[in-house]
C-alpha cells in the first residue's frame, strides 16, 4: 500500500516522493500554503547574498521551518564546478546539512547541465562528505558515471528547467531507472500533473518540480494535483500496467452472446 511505500536517500527515509522548489512564488505565504498542499517533505532552496541594507527583511526560514522540512540547498546559477562547490560549502555552514542538490549549468538559454563539470563537482563533494543529489542529462551513461562519482541520487531532466514541456524521452528515463542503484528522480520539465504521473510510471523514485506549481494560476490547487499524480503514478507502477496490443480485445465475454 502507498502508506508503507517509503524511499530512502543517503540513509534518510521519506514518505512523499514529491520534492518541490521554493522559487517564483508571489510571496512566502503562498509558497508555504502550496508546500503544505503538496505533502512534500523535502524542499530545494537557493543560497544567495544577504541584503546588507535590509537584513530584517522576511526570510524563507521564517515561513518554512527547516525543522519541519528537509532543506535541500541547490547550486542554481552556478556554471563551474568551483562555484557549485563553494556555494554548497557555504550552505553546509549555514544549515549544517550534507544532503544537497548539485547542478552545474552549461548555458543560460537551455539551462542544460555541463556534465564534465557536474561529474567533477560530484567527486569533490563526495570526498568532502557531502551527499549530492545531482541534476543531469537524461543519459544512462552519464547517470552511471555520476553514481560512480558519489551521487546519492541521480536526477535527470525531463525537459529544460522551467519549460513545462513534460518528459521528452521516456526511453532514456526508463533506461536510467533500470541501470541505477541509487534513487532516480525526474528533475525539471514537468508542466502538469500527468507529466509527474508519467515519471512515476516509468519507475522513478520521485519527482522534483518548482515552476509547474509556482506558475499555475492556482498554485495551492496544482500542488495538491501534483501530490495526487505522484501517488497515482507510483501506484500504477507498482500495480504493473497491462501489456500493449495493436488491436482491440473486448472486455465483455464473447461466450453467451445472444
Amino acid at each position: 500500500m502507498a502508506g508503507n511505500d517509503s524511499w530512502t536517500v543517503a540513509g534518510q527515509t521519506f514518505t512523499s516522493r514529491l520534492i518541490v522548489g521554493t522559487g517564483k512564488y508571489q510571496d512566502f505565504e503562498e509558497n508555504a500554503a502550496a508546500l503544505e498542499a503538496s505533502g512534500a517533505e523535502i524542499i530545494t532552496v537557493a543560497v544567495r547574498r544577504v541584503n546588507v541594507s535590509d537584513p530584517k527583511a522576511p526570510m524563507l526560514t521564517d515561513y518554512i521551518s527547516p525543522k519541519k522540512y528537509t532543506y535541500l540547498p541547490n547550486t542554481a546559477g552556478c556554471f563551474t564546478a568551483e562555484d557549485a562547490i563553494r556555494t554548497l560549502r557555504l550552505a553546509r555552514e549555514a544549515g549544517g546539512w550534507d544532503l544537497v542538490k548539485l547542478e552545474v549549468l552549461g548555458e543560460a538559454k537551455t539551462l542544460y547541465p555541463n556534465m564534465v563539470e557536474t561529474i567533477r563537482a560530484t567527486e569533490v563533494l563526495a570526498s568532502e562528505g557531502f551527499k549530492p543529489m545531482v541534476y543531469c542529462v537524461d543519459d544512462p551513461i552519464a547517470a552511471k558515471q555520476l553514481e560512480d562519482a558519489g551521487a546519492v541520487a541521480v536526477m535527470p531532466l525531463g525537459a529544460p528547467i522551467g519549460s513545462g514541456l513534460g518528459i521528452q524521452n521516456c526511453v532514456t528515463i526508463r533506461l536510467i531507472v533500470e541501470g541505477a542503484k541509487v534513487p532516480i528522480l525526474v528533475d525539471a520539465g514537468v508542466g502538469t500533473a500527468s507529466d509527474a504521473a508519467v515519471a512515476m510510471e516509468l519507475g522513478c523514485d520521485g519527482v522534483l518540480m518548482n515552476t509547474a506549481i509556482a506558475e499555475a494560476k492556482d498554485p495551492v490547487r496544482m500542488a495538491r494535483a501534483m501530490k495526487l499524480s505522484v501517488e497515482s503514478g507510483r501506484e500504477a507502477y507498482l500495480a504493473g500496467r497491462m501489456g500493449r496490443r495493436m488491436y482491440a480485445d473486448p472486455s465483455s465475454p464473447l461466450a453467451g452472446l445472444i
Binding site: 522548489g21 521554493t22 509558497n31 532552496v45 537557493a46 547574498r49 550552505a91 549555514a94
Partner: peptide, 24 residues
C-alpha cells in the same frame, strides 16, 4: 560559526554573507 566572536577582520578583507532563499 563557532569562531564568529573570535575572528578579527583585517583591512581589505572580502566577505560574503549568505542565507537561504527560495529556489528550485
Amino acid at each position: 560559526r563557532s569562531t564568529f566572536a573570535d575572528m578579527k577582520l583585517a583591512d581589505g578583507d572580502s566577505l560574503e554573507i549568505v542565507h537561504f532563499v527560495g529556489g528550485g
